[in-house]
Design a protein around this nucleic acid. Structure first.
Lengths: 243, 243
DNA sequence: CGTAGACTTGACGGCACTCAAACAAGGTGG
DNA sequence: CCACCTTGTTTGAGTGCCGTCAAGTCTACG
């Protein structure tokens, strides 16, 4: 029987490839305990050697690194259905921390069970591999945005990305979605100051591209927002095909 | 028998885990033809659906994306022994291009053979998976550098990274290494202008941290360069351990 | 109703960009 | 063998995006 908390995760997988019932069962069987994490808490810390990987069932998490002078850089934002540290299964030692942006519900997968999956389910292994490479593709797109886009286009791009990724797991409500993140955190993700985040946000608002209020974002003009960000969803690999 | 051109690649693997003779043979058998690529040529292009993955035997390559206004952002620099598009084996469609920075010798691995490896060699599969996750870790470190480090520290960090990565495959000669890359390309990698690359380079030179002449870099003071960049090699996962 | 956290606004300064030109070096053809 | 050209590096001047500092406003919540 398939695990109910893995619903969004399976949706994410099914968008990229056909997952057999046996594979779904194997994943469900590999799932360990569930847990609640309060907002602001760390799920894993840099230097840790976790013996299990964490899947976000609900809530938002972030991967980040803190520099010696206290500056923080967020390298990824994870939404429900994302495996936040599947890579620790292979990398062993964490080279960054993972924190909860909001209260989260998580499921953990002991590495022992994941190893078994790699021994017995090669196709499923490739699909899990794919999931980690999607993160990698998103990292590349962030690099492009940080290096070559204006702050406003970069922010627009992030909104586009989250709009699509949340759509995949059914968390878009009409033209809006919830994103429990402050402007300081947004600055840490974009690599700009919180003050500038505010200015850039107002720019996008004044262009009637979106509203952003109380952690709820309304996309007012999706085609124009995409053009503003030069957003192309190719890097999210949304096609179902044999992997 | 093991393939001689895979030497550097095997060295890179052996640094992270013990690779059996059978695994080395399997990889060698999966290797297809070798080829020479002239400097400036593309190995793969955005939108391609390659049926094989490319390993760099000698020479330097780069992953990049070009925006509509012609701006380019380099998202990765690959050195000999690196698999430049192993991820295409799983992602199928390329979301970026790969170009040769210098004349290169490459070996290609048909995806069919890689699929077989995932069916028959689970441990080797995890090691290959690891190789793609190292790229991912490097992406994250670039994001941190782009977002939160000064241009000079970012450049210093890149030099540190290449120094370590080239050391792994035996391409450090004393305190120096060859990096066939122009200041324009360096700017594309760091996300800054070529003019500013020049200024920042001179800053590091005047601090007696390094020299950079004719595509040859001398590291004059490794400890101080590391401190300047706040470089910590943890993200390169240099320990050998069971994956 | 008071306080803390988040958001907003303004002033000012600096890092990095653009434009432009000079300089160096390697390759080519007359 | 030397003009000439191309590519890459260096330097300068002027501009602007974005950072810091600081203060003020709004909202949620005890």
């Amino acid at each position: 029987m398939t695990h109910p908390s893995l619903d969004r995760f399976f949706r994410k997988l099914a968008l990229r490839d056909v997952i057999s019932a046996a594979e779904r069962d194997a994943l469900s069987a590999a799932a360990g305990g569930e847990a609640e994490i309060p907002a602001g808490a760390d799920l894993v810390r840099e230097g840790d050697r976790p013996d299990r990987s964490t899947l976000v069932v609900s809530g938002f998490t972030t991967r980040y690194r803190v520099l010696s002078d206290g500056q923080r850089q967020i390298t990824a934002i994870h939404v429900p259905g994302d495996f936040v540290d599947l890579h620790s299964f292979v990398l062993k030692e964490m080279d960054h921390s993972v924190g909860a942006l909001s209260a989260c519900r998580i499921v953990t997968f002991p590495h022992r069970g994941l190893t078994e999956i790699t021994e017995r389910f090669p196709h499923l292994t490739r699909v899990l591999w794919l999931m980690t490479l999607l993160d990698s593709a998103i990292h590349r797109e962030w690099i492009v945005a940080m290096g070559r886009r204006s702050a406003s286009a970069q922010l627009a791009h992030l909104v586009c990305e989250l709009y699509v990724r949340l759509g995949v797991v059914g968390l878009i409500d009409g033209d809006s979605f919830v994103l429990p993140i402050t402007q300081v955190e947004l600055g840490d993700a974009l690599g700009i100051s919180a003050v500038h985040v505010n200015r850039v946000l107002q720019e996008l608002r004044s262009e009637n591209l979106l509203t952003w209020h109380n952690h709820k974002i309304h996309v007012l003009d999706w085609p124009r927002l995409q053009r503003r960000a030069e957003f192309d969803s190719r890097y999210l690999h949304l096609q179902q095909e044999p992997r």
